[in-house]
Each structure stands twice: as structure tokens, then as C-alpha cells.
């Protein structure tokens, strides 16, 4: 794992990748600090991070797009498979390198509240709590980006797809107000989701029967739940959209609440997508 980590770090810091990523993040944090802390003279640093959270949805996909898709395109993935290291070690090494690239600008950012506190009354626990939450949210987004990159050998597609997913995740709370809150609307959305899942299963496992079976079982489950417990479907779709939003959970830190469920959620999302990335890489060996 250390070999992969060192190799990735070298490639990020020898090329412009790490610097451009860091520069963009620092630039937006700087703009935010200028706008809130200096021009508006607000002492809450957490607002700056809230302002910057949308930026993550743009720059993280650009950072993660090539991590696995480029290996596949250059056929260097065959080297990784033939080396005496496991797929888990490869993914972890690559992920930790990305995390380091992300952590470096955040370390610089974490000096800002200290600097500001010399000129005014900054509530440091809230500021550092939200920097911590910002880090965790980024970590989860990077894991998502790694997974999307493992699906294709086309960097552009990987970037576009993860950007779309992250933006949807960002706006899902506001969007949830506009989606149907009725039970029927939720059923419809669930059906679409199940169909998408089946298509994905069919595509990944190349096993049509499994996809059909899964689809039928899930549809029956949904229908059974609909007849026996119709009330649970009221408002289901907006609730799900809000619950799954990484960005919405970050808000509670901005509001000064150290939300442990958000920490657990971020870590779970990270672990899930890293696990899926390992499976996606492993699967290519079994096609």
C-alpha cells in the first residue's frame, strides 16, 4: 500500500494536479473569507466553508477523474493486478494519496480562524468543527469520485458523471421541495430507482436472470409495503433526498452543532464507495 501511496503522491506533486487543486480551493476559501470575514465583518469562519462547499462538487471530480480510469486506459492496471499487492491496498493507497492532496490546502485554511481571532471575537470550536466536517465531507466526495473513475476508462466521462452526482447531492435538499410528496409519487420514484438498479446489475454482472429476479423481488416488496403501510410512503421521496445529502449534513456544523450522525454518515459513505471501488476493480478480473 505504501508503494502505491508514495507513487501516487509523487505523481500528484510532480505534476500540477496537487497545486492546481490546492490553488482553486484556497482561492475560493480566500474569496469567501474576503466577502464574509473582511467585507461584511462577520466573525463566523464556518460561513466561508459553507460558501465553498459547492466548489468541492466541481474540483473533486476533476481531481479524482483520472485516478483509476487512466490506469485502465494506459493498461497499467495489468501491472497493478500482476504485482503482489491486493486490490484493497491499491484502492487504499490511491485514496490516501488523494486525501493528502486535499488535506494540504485544508491545513493552510485551518490557520485562518487563528489569524482572524487576533482581530476579533472568533468562536473557534465552531470554526474548527466545521473545518473537520468539511474535511469529512470532502473525504466522502473523493471516495465517490474514485468509485466513478473505476467504472470507465474515459476521464471526461468520469469527471462529468461524478460532477452530476455531486451537484445533484448538493441541490437535492432544495429539489426535494419540488418533488411529489404523495405516496404515489414515491412509488413511482422507487420503481424508477429499482429499474435503474436492475439495469446496473445487468450491466455489471452480465447476468440477466439475476437482474430480473432482483427487480421482481424489490417490486413485490415495495407493493407489499404499499398495501400494508401506505402512510410510510407519504413524503418518502423528499425525506430520502434530504437524508442522503452530504451537504445538508454539513450545514448542521455550520450552525454550530457537532452532529455525530453526520460524522458517522460521512465515514459510512466513504467506506461504502471505497468498498465498491475495490469490487469494481476486482470484477474486471472476473469478466
Amino acid at each position: 500500500m505504501t508503494a502505491v501511496l508514495k507513487h501516487e503522491l509523487r505523481s500528484y506533486f510532480h505534476s500540477l494536479t496537487a497545486y492546481v487543486f490546492g490553488a482553486f480551493l484556497l482561492m475560493f476559501v480566500g474569496l469567501g473569507a474576503l466577502r464574509y470575514n473582511i467585507q461584511a465583518a462577520v466573525s463566523n469562519f464556518e460561513f466561508v466553508l459553507e460558501y465553498c462547499s459547492l466548489v468541492l462538487a466541481i474540483i473533486v471530480p476533476v481531481l479524482t477523474m483520472r485516478v483509476l480510469s487512466e490506469e485502465r486506459r494506459q493498461k497499467t492496471d495489468q501491472l497493478l493486478y500482476s504485482l503482489p499487492i491486493s486490490t484493497t491496498q491499491v484502492i487504499l493507497g490511491k485514496y490516501l494519496a488523494l486525501l493528502t492532496v486535499y488535506l494540504v490546502p485544508l491545513c493552510i485554511v485551518s490557520l485562518y480562524p487563528l489569524i482572524f481571532s487576533r482581530f476579533g471575537d472568533v468562536y473557534l470550536p465552531a470554526a474548527y468543527g466545521s473545518i473537520f466536517a468539511f474535511f469529512l465531507m470532502g473525504a466522502a466526495l473523493i471516495a465517490l469520485g474514485v468509485f466513478v473513475s473505476s467504472l470507465t476508462d474515459n476521464q471526461g466521462l468520469a469527471a462529468g458523471l461524478s460532477m452530476a452526482l455531486m451537484l445533484f447531492n448538493y441541490f437535492s435538499v432544495s429539489l426535494s421541495e419540488y418533488v411529489s410528496a404523495t405516496a404515489f409519487g414515491s412509488i413511482l420514484a422507487l420503481t424508477v430507482l429499482i429499474l435503474l438498479l436492475c439495469v446496473l446489475v445487468r450491466f455489471v454482472t452480465k447476468n440477466e436472470n439475476l437482474a430480473y429476479l432482483l427487480g421482481i423481488v424489490l417490486m413485490l416488496a415495495v407493493m407489499a409495503a404499499y398495501f400494508f403501510h401506505i402512510s410510510s410512503f407519504e413524503n418518502l421521496l423528499p425525506r430520502v433526498m434530504t437524508t442522503l445529502s452530504l451537504f445538508a449534513r454539513f450545514e448542521s456544523f455550520v450552525n454550530g452543532v457537532f452532529d455525530l450522525t453526520a460524522v458517522v454518515f460521512d465515514l459510512t459513505v466513504t467506506a461504502l464507495f471505497l468498498f465498491l471501488s475495490v469490487q469494481s476493480l476486482e470484477k474486471r478480473r472476473y469478466n
Binding site: 505504501t2 508514495k6 494506459q74 493498461k75 495489468q78 504485482l83 503482489p84 499487492i85
Partner: peptide, 27 residues
């Protein structure tokens, strides 16, 4: 075993020295 696939799996942006260092460490 040492394996050379049909298309040599090389990281084009690196030098042979850097590349071999990575493979050696991974081994």
C-alpha cells in the same frame, strides 16, 4: 513470476528510474 503483458504497462509521465522504483517497492 515477472510478467510483461502484451502492451507494456508503463506510466508515460515518469522516468524509467521512477517507474522501476515504484514497481520495486510494490514487490
Amino acid at each position: 513470476i515477472g510478467y510483461l503483458p502484451e502492451q507494456p504497462p508503463l506510466y508515460l509521465n515518469e522516468t524509467p528510474l521512477e517507474y522501476l522504483r515504484f514497481v520495486g517497492e510494490a514487490k
